[in-house]
């Protein structure tokens, strides 16, 4: 069930990414939807789910990009694994934790991509620091919002299930 849920989320991410590019390709500078998905998936599951989700999301991002295939897959695998480990160790349950984790993940990915690009491309072009910070901020806020909504929905679903069970017992 969890893999299916992740694949559904990945499909939505791809659609949102392409739709954003249709509106304005430059908008993709402001948000990284695949990192948001990778980190949220890592926070929600175990280390294995985190890293496999990261690999899948990263390879999908590579398919839509012109860079060497595997660059985003490599970095997203690390991000997914790290997100799951950090959220297990620190028991991250708050929205602010999700915001911080996602924003940091965007920055870490930029550094990792830069390092890998130095090995694979003839010329190194540094990312624009302003847009990097904007991307980290916007992705963090978006991921925190999604985390908040999903957590609320889950709490509501749990409460409804408990009410139903109580009624069945009393009835």
């Amino acid at each position: 069930m969890r893999p299916l849920r992740f694949l559904g989320a990945l499909a939505l991410t791809v659609i949102a990414h392409v739709a954003t590019a249709s509106v304005s390709p430059q908008l993709l500078n402001a948000v990284d939807l695949f990192v948001v998905l990778t980190v949220l998936n890592g926070m929600n599951g175990g280390s294995l789910a985190g890293m496999l989700g990261g690999t899948t999301a990263g390879l999908c991002q590579d398919t839509l990009s012109g860079s060497v295939f595997g660059l985003h897959g490599f970095t997203a695998t690390i991000l997914g694994y790290a997100a799951s480990r950090i959220s297990q160790r620190l028991v991250l349950r708050r929205v602010s934790g999700a915001l911080l984790l996602i924003s940091s993940a965007v920055l870490v990915q930029a550094v990792a991509l830069l390092a890998l690009s130095a090995l694979t491309l003839p010329e190194l072009i540094l990312p624009d620091p302003f847009w990097l910070l904007v991307r980290a901020g916007v992705s963090g806020v978006l991921g925190a919002l999604i985390y908040f909504l999903v957590t609320r929905w889950r709490q509501g679903a749990d409460a409804r299930r408990k009410r139903r069970t109580r009624r069945l017992r009393m009835g």
């Binding site: 249709s22 390709p25 430059q26 012109g66 860079s67 690009s117 072009i125």
Partner: peptide, 13 residues
């Protein structure tokens, strides 16, 4: 149908 013009990724589909 898809264009990506980010600084490091320039591709069309």
């Amino acid at each position: 149908v898809y264009a990506d013009h980010r600084p490091s990724l320039r591709v069309l589909i």
